[in-house]
Design a protein around this nucleic acid. Structure first.
Lengths: 333, 333
DNA sequence: CTGTTAGCGCATTCAT
DNA sequence: ATGAATGCGCTAACAG
């Protein structure tokens, strides 16, 4: 394992001092064009790469960021991550990707490890920590921006989708098409987004003076299996339902499968609206009508906000809310 | 921005020397249980977190790894990444996620940035660099393991799927079902995997003394759009084809769409076999028959190999080859 | 325009 | 069982 080339090696070889090399590297201070070129050559020849870790020790900035998500293989978060990574890289930062596996203990662990790595900033997606624990955790941390999660009070940034509006426009669409008995596959009971979507769902009924039945709602795990089971149960118990609004597209796909099992035609017998517009949504048959928030944009904007705050603009707009839009496809035309 | 608590702060507060604190942190050397507890308490109270970057400067090990993928939002790589990240985290490492965006220039850039971060090791997935450039790049780098890419000669580790075998069993399945005119949607021309799958495709024909026509092959971008366009073209030009073997599942989904447009029933008129078994494969209708390699396993095994090599076992088994298995669903029963 | 001195936060080596 | 000195590779603040 041959040692890394150091600045001292370059300086010796070039016959100059450390500082001159440092200046060339950082394009700082006045260095004569001649020596600059000379040093440049030596750097090339020796294949010198400045150590960001040594540099970080003195500058107190590592050029690294932490990105914490529940599950980076989930198509939702993988897109958010990509948007975030892209924006970070454009500003010269590298990002640590950390999965919490939906576990709060693991979430605390990764936050600690990122802290020890001295990341310059933190992007925390869909944190499952409760208010107190989250506050506590952020105290020890550098600049933080939350994605898909809101925290009252202090000055942490946040980027969110307007989930209430999402629930509203999705349900409104179904109501406009004449549906009155609309089921809601609500996702996990402790999901903040889920609660907001429910509010929107109720608000839409209120707009047209229609009434909803609490029995029309069913919680489920936010995946295909969960959606299938919940849809099966709901449609069996309430054959009067003519439409379903779903927590996310995976759940909606599960609902599609449940309808298939029950011999119900979509959208003829049951119309279905999902949420998120993951790539899958356009590929299943019937293709899903769904409520889109750009996940890539979510990640990108969050990262840009984080970077601004790192660069010092802590007063910078604290909360960004992305509006969803309805994408009408076959499952609820 | 309050300064981080340092070891000196802890030492002063505890009334001991730096070394004692260091020993407590690293669980090293003999420290009396009493002082250990005392120091422990102060650490808790002050919320001290050792700086991995300072530590890295002296130990020459950062506890960080680089993970380079073409596109982390691609379901294939996002699963690989998750397996890799999981394994790394289990060993106390954090991983930098880097996207190359399928660009070799970008790939070189991220490799450079990871080098400057002094990562302890590198997991390089589906590198698009040619042999020479790859060799050149790896020279400057610490321990490296390749995923989905083979490089002859020196001692870099590699974990790959047996793509030739994949092509073989997929095509063999179609031949066994009586198909003789089988098209091949081959993916990008410069894809190594694609070439191997083609070999397997040809080998399967040879097994049963059947012949294939070079005209039955069509290159395409490895995504839904690419698959759709290529399948459309191929099926139009060669109406005699009764089956398609596809570079990956996204391409296969594109082929499904092309069949729909052309009024061809799958699998009645055209049978389709994909590759990878991404989650989507089971969700489209008809569900895809496909050739599965566990992507999670690919990432996990690669990372474990990398870690072993970092820990010193450079002679450790250099190449791991994962066998694919055929998953039979509706598109080619 | 260039070099010198100092120190970032920690672990290693040697002393006590 | 504990502490003092030294240096990891680099930049910031001064000097010259």
């Amino acid at each position: 394992m041959p040692r890394y080339v150091t600045m001292a090696d370059v300086a010796r070889e070039a016959g100059v001092s450390l500082m001159t090399v440092s200046r060339v590297i950082n394009d700082k201070g006045e260095v004569s064009t001649l020596t600059r070129q000379h040093v440049q050559e030596i750097i090339e020849r020796l294949g010198y790469r400045p150590s960001n870790i040594a540099r970080g020790l003195v500058t107190q900035r590592t050029g690294t960021l932490g990105l914490v998500v529940p599950d980076s293989a989930n198509p939702f978060f993988s897109e958010v991550a990509r948007g975030a990574e892209h924006a970070a890289y454009a500003h010269g930062y590298n990002v640590f990707l950390c999965n919490t596996e939906e576990s709060t203990e693991q979430e605390l662990n990764v936050l600690k490890s990122l802290d020890e790595k001295r990341v310059d900033g933190l992007l925390l997606c869909s944190s499952r920590l409760d208010k107190t624990a989250l506050h506590q955790a952020l105290l020890q941390h550098p600049v933080t921006v939350l994605v898909n999660r809101w925290l009252e009070g202090d000055g942490v940034g946040a980027v969110l989708a307007d989930d209430r509006l999402g629930g509203l426009i999705a349900t409104r669409h179904l109501l406009q098409r004449g549906h009155r008995k609309i089921g809601f596959l609500a996702g996990p009971p402790n999901s903040h987004s889920g609660r907001l979507r429910m509010e929107g769902y109720h608000a839409a009924f209120a707009e047209v003076d229609a009434t909803w039945d609490p029995e029309w709602m069913e919680h489920c795990t936010p995946m295909v299996d969960g959606g299938q089971a919940a849809a099966y149960k709901l449609l069996t118990a309430h054959p009067e339902l003519t439409a379903l609004f779903c927590f996310n597209d995976l759940v909606a796909v599960g609902a599609l499968q449940a309808c298939e099992e029950l011999g119900l035609v979509v959208p003829g017998d049951v119309a279905i609206v999902g949420t998120d517009d993951i790539p899958l949504a356009a590929l299943v048959r019937p293709a899903l009508t769904t409520c889109r928030v750009s996940r890539y944009e979510l990640g990108k904007q969050a990262m840009q906000l984080l970077l601004k705050r790192i660069e010092g603009c802590l007063e910078e707009c604290q909360t960004i809310i992305l509006k969803p839009e309805l994408v009408i496809r076959e499952s609820a035309p």
